[in-house]
């Protein structure tokens, strides 16, 4: 049945190159998460602002991010914007696409988290003499973070997985890009992609474990 001889040695020789790619993958994922978080906070602010224009922008962003494929968003960031003469490098396009996607999902996540905190608590805080900012900072925010944390870590794992889509816009330095290039040269698809899968698995697990450790430090009573 198996008429195929595996060439693992040849594939394993490329491991250092692939691990370098893994670092780029992690870097893109972390940056996209940081930018995504910042945008999500801004979008949440827009939604609460009461301004129709601002909440309109937020609504469009969130719905487009959540209702179209990430691959489409990245493709758009490169070739769609390119049509207007805005040229993002593959790295920037990938980062922009994932950050856009992250922001949409995180903003929705924050909204859910905000809702989970009863308004009576803010009022209680205010009646203790806090101003509205203090009430938000000391009462709402800590609880909100707690509710929003787990979905946010899931989004982080998603961000790592999404970085693999960079190959479609010419990215060749991240793990998927390096793997695809090695594959195109040698046609040894299975070996190279199997190694890539293992590396992705370990990155995802490491991030999940780190997030859990962080949560344990931050949220224990």
């Amino acid at each position: 049945m198996f008429n195929y001889t595996f060439h693992w040695n040849q594939a394993l020789r490329a491991l250092p190159q692939m691990l370098d790619g893994a670092l780029v993958t992690l870097q893109v994922a972390v940056l996209s998460m940081v930018i995504g978080l910042a945008c999500a906070i801004a979008l949440t602010g827009f939604r609460l602002s009461g301004s129709r224009i601002l909440s309109g922008i937020a609504a469009v962003w969130v719905e487009v991010a959540r209702n179209t494929p990430a691959l489409f968003q990245i493709y758009m960031a490169h070739f769609g914007l390119g049509n207007f003469g805005i040229h993002l490098s593959p790295y920037a396009a990938l980062l922009a696409g994932i950050a856009f996607n992250n922001a949409g999902y995180l903003a929705e996540n924050f909204r859910g988290a905000l809702k989970a905190i009863p308004e009576t608590q803010t009022r209680a805080g205010r009646s203790l003499g806090m101003n509205s900012l203090q009430a938000f900072r000391f009462i709402v925010l800590p609880q909100m973070l707690r509710v929003a944390y787990l979905p946010a870590t899931n989004q982080m794992v998603w961000a790592i997985l999404m970085t693999s889509l960079g190959v479609t816009v010419g990215m060749n330095t991240d793990l998927a890009g390096v793997t695809q290039e090695l594959n195109a040269r040698s046609f040894r698809t299975f070996e190279f992609f199997a190694i890539a899968a293992v590396i992705y698995y370990f990155i995802a697990k490491a991030v999940t474990l780190a997030a859990r450790a962080l949560a344990w430090r931050m949220f224990r009573y």
């Binding site: 490169h78 070739f79 593959p90 190959v167 010419g170 060749n172």
Partner: peptide
Amino acid sequence: RPYQTQADVFLALSQGQ
């Protein structure tokens, strides 16, 4: 920059990417 299809290369070229 390696693109996955020849079409994407020429698209990127015509856009000035």
